[in-house]
């Protein structure tokens, strides 16, 4: 019932899944240095992860409190019912993100890594 090409497709599919898993979960992501905070899709704060502070962002359900510490950030409190973004805890890597839905507030960490190591002219 299965033909040679089928096994090829299955092997290619498995390799794709493995590559995606490595890329999404295990590939080294640089340290984060900036926290981007969005409300309703618009960037409301862009804060360097240098000194401790707490930011309060207003969403449709109420205020979301975001705590910044050197090198990391987290959503401290949020009125969304399921509290998923709060339970994510501290974010420290570039690319990490916590979405508070339905309060429409998101916290995303950015690193210094640019797509190029160096550009030579």
């Amino acid at each position: 019932m299965l033909k040679a090409g089928d096994f090829g497709v299955l092997a290619a599919g498995t390799a794709t899944v493995a590559a995606l898993a490595w890329w999404a979960w295990f590939a080294p992501s640089g340290a984060a240095d900036t926290a981007l905070i969005r409300a309703a899709g618009k960037i409301v704060h862009s804060v360097p992860l240098t000194r401790p502070q707490t930011l309060v962002v207003a969403g449709p359900l109420g205020p979301t409190r975001i705590e910044i510490e050197p090198g990391r950030a987290r959503v401290q409190a949020d009125p969304s019912p399921r509290q998923l973004c709060v339970r994510q805890g501290w974010l420290a890597h570039a690319g990490d993100a916590a979405l508070c839905l339905p309060n429409q507030v998101s916290l995303e960490l950015r690193g210094r890594q640019s797509p190029y190591d160096t550009l030579v002219y």
């Binding site: 599919g13 498995t14 794709t16 899944v17 995606l20 898993a21 999404a24 690319g95 995303e108």
Partner: peptide
């Protein structure tokens, strides 16, 4: 729906399910 990178972390899960 989710502009940004939130979807990327789930990509392998979806791909494995598809397989």
């Amino acid at each position: 729906l989710l502009p940004g990178i939130a979807v990327l972390k789930l990509l392998p899960v979806f791909a494995a399910a598809a397989l």
